[in-house]
């Protein structure tokens, strides 16, 4: 795997995959996509980076501990459900906020934050497993 071609191309692939994963995550509310599949794509990008430039580089590129990223996702998803406490409705009821930005309307909603939470959970958990399996001792879980 450790060829010059792969190492040269890998950053490009990784960047494209990461941008695409965010796109897939955000379009997921009304179209095919969503946090889970977006997170999987992002985690695959990390895996590609791990294959091309080694586990340590991939680990550094994440900046945060992958398990902590997953935990932050759980926190975000749970908090997005809790927000509906303030509208007097049931747990996980969606709240929508339409932001008028010039010519476009940006719909912000709690399901979107839930989806971003799922994205982070999948990205963190699968990166942790992937990086853990890439070492010889299986440490990291």
């Amino acid at each position: 795997m450790n060829t010059v071609i792969f190492r040269t191309i890998a950053p490009l692939i990784v960047g494209t995959m990461l941008v695409f994963s965010v796109y897939i995550c955000l379009r997921g509310h009304n179209e095919p996509g969503g946090g889970f599949i977006g997170g999987l794509i992002a985690a695959s990008a990390i895996a590609v980076l791990g294959m091309s430039s080694g586990r340590d580089a991939a680990r550094r590129a994440l900046r945060f501990d992958p398990i902590a990223i997953a935990a932050a996702g759980v926190l975000l998803a749970a908090s997005s459900g809790l927000l509906s406490l303030f509208t007097g409705s049931a747990f996980m009821t969606s709240i929508w906020l339409y932001l008028e930005l010039g010519e476009t309307t940006v719909p912000l909603s709690t399901p979107m934050f839930f989806d971003i939470g799922v994205y982070l959970v999948v990205l963190g958990a699968i990166s942790a497993i992937g990086l853990g399996l890439e070492t010889d001792d299986g440490e990291g879980l």
Binding site: A125, I126, I129, G132, L133, D137, G138, L141
Partner: peptide, 16 residues
């Protein structure tokens, strides 16, 4: 998937 990946790592560590 989560369970399987855990069991995979577990089996690997157990083998070691």
């Amino acid at each position: 998937f989560a369970m399987f990946s855990f069991l995979l790592v577990l089996a690997y560590r157990a083998y070691q």
